[in-house]
């Protein structure tokens, strides 16, 4: 396993781990305070706290793909592609974890006052998670293109495929920054639910506008990867 592959594993689990850690820290601190006042809300608190753990699960998954099949990679271009895969899920996981943490804390506040806001708050909390899902999708396409997934052995990629993977990864990571702002706007939308529950349908339109940026990033990344035959 060469240095790029190792850095890829480090990025996948490390960055997403930091995102999850921060997210869990934010929600867990609110949860523990809430549960000390209202012990019956333990289940609800657990749901929102656990949600921030998903980015690291996706990071772990891509790390495992790379560890299990990437030991025999010694080609520079393939290594660069694998590095891109690790970065994609890692950095998007970081932004996602932060966003989930921010929105999740607000959701816990809302649910502690009114149980019936659970479903609507949940939607705003899972919106930042979409970002790491897009990162995971790009990672899967790259990892499969490099032959680490789906059998058939490691592929020897050309330099165009390698740099395209890196570019795709950069695109999804940069647009994935929207995960943080999705969390912030989601938190505001959740607090507006407390004032007017019927504002849900309209609020979600505004919040999703931010997510569109990451979706455009995903679209461009997928088109780029398709252009070099990795999809």
């Amino acid at each position: 396993m060469d240095i790029f592959t190792l850095v890829s594993v480090l990025s996948a689990i490390g960055f997403s781990g930091v995102g999850s850690m921060l997210g869990i820290a934010m929600t867990a601190s609110v949860s523990s305070r809430m549960v000390s006042e209202k012990p019956e809300k333990f289940g609800l608190a657990l749901v929102f706290t656990v949600l921030a753990e998903t980015p690291v699960i996706y990071g772990l998954l891509v790390s495992l793909f790379i560890i299990m099949n990437g030991s025999s990679v010694n080609d520079f271009n393939t290594s660069i592609s694998i590095l891109s895969a690790g970065l994609s899920v890692g950095l998007t996981g970081l932004f996602s974890g932060l966003g989930i943490g921010i929105a999740g804390s607000a959701a816990l506040g809302a649910v502690s006052e009114r149980d019936e806001l659970f479903g609507k708050s949940l939607i705003f909390t899972v919106l930042p998670e979409s970002i790491v899902i897009y990162g995971l999708l790009v990672s899967i396409v790259i990892v499969r293109g490099a032959g680490l997934l789906g059998g058939g052995g490691i592929h020897q990629l050309d330099s165009v495929s390698a740099y395209t993977s890196l570019a795709s990864s950069a695109i999804i990571c940069v647009t994935g920054g929207s995960g943080y702002y999705l969390g912030k706007t989601g938190a505001k939308a959740i607090s507006s639910l407390l004032k007017d529950e019927d504002s849900f349908g309209k609020s979600i339109v505004f919040v999703v506008l931010i997510e569109s940026i990451a979706i455009y990033g995903l679209l461009v990344a997928i088109l780029l990867l398709r252009g070099v035959g990795m999809l």
């Binding site: 772990l60 793909f65 979409s130 899902i133 995971l136 569109s212 979706i215």
Partner: peptide, 24 residues
């Protein structure tokens, strides 16, 4: 108009979540 594109692409999450489930 671009929102329509983002709506369609959004459904790819089904694949990512399935693979993550199967992978774990």
């Amino acid at each position: 108009v671009t929102r329509l594109v983002s709506n369609v692409v959004s459904y790819t999450r089904i694949v990512a979540i399935n693979i993550s489930h199967a992978g774990v």
